[in-house]
């Protein structure tokens, strides 16, 4: 009888151990990146490692707000964001742990946080999109500063409420100073630049003939071209080092109070592996953050891209507050 009881106790203990082990191999990920883009990658990671990744997908900014509200009690191990601004807000509150050098060293400095609190996972470039029906190549403006010319009056679209636009303005302030940035913004406003809520409507408005030029992120157009190769919109970069050529990053950070930092780091590492980076390039049409990825024929190779982008510091990208102040003063929001 006693033996039997001991046996049962042992079984229960073993069961707990197994459960505990399962518990330990679950990672909770807050993903501000769309499910439609990254789910295959997560599934591949789960298959290869046998770990279980619980993903909460939502809007990047909302997830950042959620993390800030939850604070210490957040169940999240990792936060994967679509833009540097949200990562900046979370790291400013001290919620991120420092990443190990083995991970940081994989990615060029341009694409990671200076103190190693978060790291870029893929690049998303700001581009000049234009109507391929109404605008010929030689008409295209050379620089973002040309968009304030009267010939583009009421013909340009932008998305000032959008996180990636605001990141671009933040970077622009870093390069040319607040004063010139404010001047450019207010000139753009006077020139009748049309404000759209986000990038997709800019592309649609270009096709519909509402505007001739637009300032979106680079990857949306490919999705339109995928279902309709004759979609009447094209895109290009401005001249070398123009502030309009900013490359923003989607990035990831490990939360301080993660229950499971080792496995969480494995996921981060996986996202920086050649395989995952190749996925971003071929399937999501984004720029890689590591060398040695076969370039997508639609995209510039990484080294060429790095030559044309302006110099910017991702650490400065968390001054969203200053940017918003500027946008408010100009009356854009």
């Amino acid at each position: 009888m006693v033996k039997k009881r001991i046996k049962i106790v042992i079984y229960i203990l073993v069961l707990f151990l197994i459960l505990g082990k399962i518990q330990a191999e679950t990672i909770t990920l807050y993903s501000g990146r769309s499910k439609s883009l990254v789910e295959p990658l997560i599934e591949q990671f789960e298959k290869e490692t046998g770990m279980d990744v619980k993903v909460s997908y939502a809007n990047t900014t909302q997830l950042a707000s959620k993390l800030l509200t939850e604070g210490e009690k957040s169940p999240a191990d990792i936060f994967w964001a679509q833009d540097a601004g949200a990562l900046g807000a979370v790291s400013k509150k001290g919620l991120f742990a420092e990443l190990p050098d083995s991970i940081l060293s994989k990615v060029p400095e341009t694409f990671r946080h200076g103190d190693g609190l978060w790291i870029g996972t893929s690049g998303r470039a700001r581009v000049l999109a234009y109507s391929s029906e109404r605008i010929s190549n030689n008409e295209l403006p050379d620089s973002i500063f040309d968009l304030t010319q009267t010939k583009w009056k009421g013909k340009v679209g932008w998305a000032p409420l959008n996180a990636s636009f605001q990141a671009f303005v933040t970077a622009m302030r870093g390069q040319i100073g607040d004063e010139r940035t404010e001047k450019w913004l207010s000139d753009m406003k006077t020139n009748g630049t049309i404000a759209y809520p986000k990038n997709t409507p800019i592309i649609e408005a270009l096709a519909a003939g509402e505007i001739d030029l637009g300032l979106p992120n680079h990857y949306y157009l490919f999705r339109f071209k995928k279902s309709n190769s004759k979609y009447p919109v094209a895109q290009t970069f401005f001249k070398v080092k123009d502030p309009g050529n900013l490359v923003n990053v989607a990035g990831i950070g490990l939360l301080n109070n993660s229950n499971n930092p080792e496995n969480a780091l494995k996921l981060i590492e996986y996202l920086l592996s050649a395989k995952a980076q190749q996925y971003f390039v071929s399937e999501v049409f984004e720029y890689p953050v590591i060398e040695g990825v076969i370039p997508n024929s639609n995209l510039l190779p990484l080294d060429e891209l790095l030559e044309i982008v302006p110099k910017f510091d991702l650490n400065e990208m968390d001054d969203l507050e200053g940017t918003v102040k500027l946008l408010r003063r100009v009356g854009i929001m």
């Binding site: 909770t28 439609s36 909460s56």
Partner: peptide, 29 residues
Amino acid sequence: PLTLLLRPPEYETLAVNVWDYTEEAMFAE
């Protein structure tokens, strides 16, 4: 908005999928 922030991880709804795909300009999906 409520679903996005309050749902358990991996809980899917139709509206969330419509939003997720349109957000990425994947209208056919």
